[in-house]
Every structure is written in structure tokens, then in C-alpha cells.
Design a protein around this nucleic acid. Sequence first.
DNA 1: CATAAATCCTATAAAAAAGATAGACTAAAT
DNA 2: ATTTAGTCTATCTTTTTTATAGGATTTATG
Lengths: 138, 138
Amino acid sequence: MLSKKTQYAFHALIYLAENVDKGPILISEIAQEKSISIKFLENILLELKNSGILGSKKGKGGGYYLMKPPKEIALAKIIRLLDGPIALLPCVSLNYYERCENCRDEAVCGLNEVMGRVRDSALKILENKTLKDILTKS
Amino acid sequence: MLSKKTQYAFHALIYLAENVDKGPILISEIAQEKSISIKFLENILLELKNSGILGSKKGKGGGYYLMKPPKEIALAKIIRLLDGPIALLPCVSLNYYERCENCRDEAVCGLNEVMGRVRDSALKILENKTLKDILTKS
DNA sequence: CATAAATCCTATAAAAAAGATAGACTAAAT
DNA sequence: ATTTAGTCTATCTTTTTTATAGGATTTATG
């Protein structure tokens, strides 16, 4: 399961995407609209900013905004950033690979193979679906 | 990611499946072969037994054994049992559903829809692949 | 330039989950 | 009776997750 952090990030990003035309959006506004603790959300948005997903402006009239159009922000990127590996096992993770300690040889491990396929099927969706694809259907 | 508990369970089950013809297998043997803490493994095997996946025999000549042939034990079942939901969000979980607190209406939530598809693509594999499919390729 | 508005940043606390261990109990074999 | 091996429940430790606190910094504007 995705952590609350990642879930909150998605909801915040959706809100930002749905209000792209309104300039910078306040943390407090997002927190209220999406029922998220404001201080927790602050940390999350900061992290997204430091990774280049969001931009921000301080002072009056400030807030957060998307650095790229929603259709260019893949869901996989957000998950990896805040939650880490998408794969179910370390030994099949593309971005956070770790050797398996309980099997002798990954090359002949059937578990490795199946979990690799699960990863691929998830990535096929998560790498191609973007923020634009998860906006509220109107 | 799957917990260590679930990962250990898979390795133990693989070992049991690869030795079905040898009668009950000792916890200590599995622990040694797969480099798993014996006490931790004990708890895991007990849980698998109480769920009907494994059977056991006490005393001399005792140990654990599979209750069904490997090809009838789906991977999804093991994961759900020890790790909980396979879905990435509570609001798209078939077995551990919880309402989403941050969105107004799941019916129009695009995140819900996409994550539902990710769940389906994972289940398509995990419900159909069994213990038999993850045995060491010889 | 002063003030208010907002994000930035780091630290820390609290709670929950994961990982691991301990030890007494029960059942079976011989 | 003794040994062997699983059963059960409790507890401990560590790590991760979730959340909060509060001062620092930047910007707009009168």
C-alpha cells in the first residue's frame, strides 16, 4: 500500500492541476480542501518542490504550482520519490535494487521472475498515466 | 514492497514444495537452508498452518508439509494472508476496502480508477501463478 | 523601511508496524 | 519415561510512518 504521504501528495497534486490557471495556491487551501494536516502537507510539498515537481513563491500572493503541465508528470515518478520501490521485492526493483539474501541464484529463482512480471505490469500503467489522467472526471 | 515475513514465507513454501516427497520437513531445516531466523520462521509457519495452507506433525519424524499440491496454491493468497492488501490504495482493495477520506466521491476519482487498474493487472498474475510456478528452474 | 504573509528548514515527538526472541506447553514416537 | 518437535502467547527492539513545533527566510506592499 502507498503511504499516507504519497496519498496526500497525489491529492494535493490533483488539486494543483485542477487549479493551474489560478496561479500559486496556498498550502492552507490545499490542506483544507483535501482534509490533510497542514504541517504534514507542508513537508510533502517542500519535498516535491526540491525534486523539481513543484515550484513555489513566498510572501503575499505566494503558494505552490506545478512546474510542468499535468500530462507530463507520470504517477510512477511521484510514487518512487515519496514511497520508494514500486516492485514487490528488492531483487526485482529497477530503481532500488538489492540482492536477494534467501535464494542462491536470482537467475533461476521463479519468484524473481514472477515478481518481475508484476512490476512490469504495474509500471506499464504507472509510467504512462499522468496527473492529467487522474483529475476528477467532470 | 512485501514484508520480510511474506518473503520468508515464499522461500519456505518453495522449499516445502521442492521436497514434497520427503514427508514432513523440520522448521530448523528450512531455516538453515533459507537463512531465516528459526524463531521468526516458526511463527510464520504456524500462521500458514492455522490458515490451512500447511499441515504439521509433532514429535519425532514430525515437521511441516503442504496441505495442497503446489499448483493449487495461488501467490495472491499468501500475500493477502501475511501482508494484507495487494492494492496500492485502501479504496481499491477487494479484500481490505476502506473509504477514501481525501476525495469527495470515489465514482469520479481518477486516482481510484487508475489504481484499480494497477490492482487488476497485478491480480491477473498473482491469482493465476501458483507455488508450482515459482519453483527453482532446473 | 516596516510589516505582514507566505514558504523554508530542521529537529523532534508520538504512534504504529515490522522484525525478532523467549520460554513454557502439548503431542507423538519409541 | 524420555526425547523430539510443533504450539502458543507474550514481550522486546528497531525501524518506519505520521505528525507537530518553531524559528529563519523571502517577498509584496503601504
